[in-house]
């Protein structure tokens, strides 16, 4: 057994093609980003080596720290929302009538591109004729909020569509994981008299713990480098109130023509992601992986 499963040639054959692609397509850009981050460069003209100047400036840049804080907030909300997705998946994967069609319908929004989702939510949030504020006026609210213009709420206003956009993604993963549990285990538990709560909490959740850990990492990393909807819906504004790391990086590199500085932001983002992932792995580490 061991001998067969340690065949170096097989391992190389299985791993190298993918590894090669990653190294060329992802690591070369990462290294170049690190290199550019040590330069003063507008992205066009000459590059001047400035060592760690960009990073020193970054440490003093309050806008950068604000965007880091916003990105972390998004990560926290995303992780919390995983709980909700898990409940929905447990329900959909359970023995309920119409589960098949319900599951499909629940995942529809995830098929839409960010462009479409952004347009939908811009209409919902429109301050005067948006769906939300018309509803609030109907309820008798005098001066409904400016969802995307008020700096104190804009961040949360854009979080909602983001979290909604990703619901399908996580529900799909959880659903597949739950369905992957051999039915013999579930049946045995039911025979033993487990009620649906016990079944979910004591049997199903521990069995998909590995998948849950992975989704936590995905949610955190995905949130930290999130860009799409924020850029379309608010552009990071007003006045940076919804700026996140990736949108700030984009603004600096592509709008301010400060590619060196933008690269420093991108590289810091990478480091933040690595640290966060490492922490998550530490925190959720268990001695042995659950097996059936």
């Amino acid at each position: 057994m061991d001998k067969v499963m340690s065949d170096k040639r097989v391992i190389a054959l299985y791993v190298l093609p993918a590894l090669l692609m990653i190294i060329i397509l992802v690591y070369v850009p990462i290294i170049m980003t690190g290199y550019y981050s040590l330069m003063k460069w507008d992205g066009i003209g000459e590059r001047t080596f400035v060592a760690l100047d960009n990073y020193k400036q970054l440490l003093k840049d309050s806008m950068f720290w604000k965007s880091v804080y916003h990105s972390f907030l998004l990560a926290v909300f995303s992780v919390l929302s995983l709980g909700g997705y898990l409940v929905v998946s447990l329900v959909l994967a359970g023995r309920i009538k119409g589960a098949n069609i319900l599951r499909k319908i629940y995942l529809i929004p995830m098929l839409l591109s960010s462009v479409a989702i952004a347009q939908l939510w811009l209409r919902i949030y429109h301050p005067s004729n948006g769906m939300l504020n018309q509803f609030l006026s109907f309820l008798g609210v005098d001066d409904p909020p400016n969802w995307l213009a008020d700096p104190s709420i804009v961040l949360y206003s854009v979080f909602i569509p983001i979290i909604w956009q990703y619901a399908g993604f996580y529900i799909l993963i959880y659903y597949a994981a739950l369905k992957n549990i051999p039915s013999s285990i579930i049946e045995a538990a039911i025979i033993d008299g487990a009620n649906p709560w016990q079944l979910a909490y004591k049997i199903k959740l521990p069995l998909i713990a590995g998948v849950i850990k992975v989704t936590i990492v995905l949610a955190v990393v995905g949130s930290l480098k999130y860009f799409d909807l924020i850029y379309v819906m608010t552009g990071g504004g007003p006045n940076g109130a919804s700026e996140v790391i990736a949108s700030y990086m984009y603004q600096k590199a592509f709008r301010s023509f400060n590619f060196g500085y933008g690269s420093a932001i991108a590289f810091s983002l990478l480091i933040l992601c690595i640290v966060a992932t490492w922490l998550i792995r530490k925190l959720t580490h268990t001695e042995e992986e659950v097996q059936y």
Binding site: L122, H126, W147, A149, P238
Partner: peptide, 15 residues
Amino acid sequence: IKGFNGLSNDEAKAE
């Protein structure tokens, strides 16, 4: 107009 800081030029023009 209400919420001008969160509206795009296209949305404002529509008003």
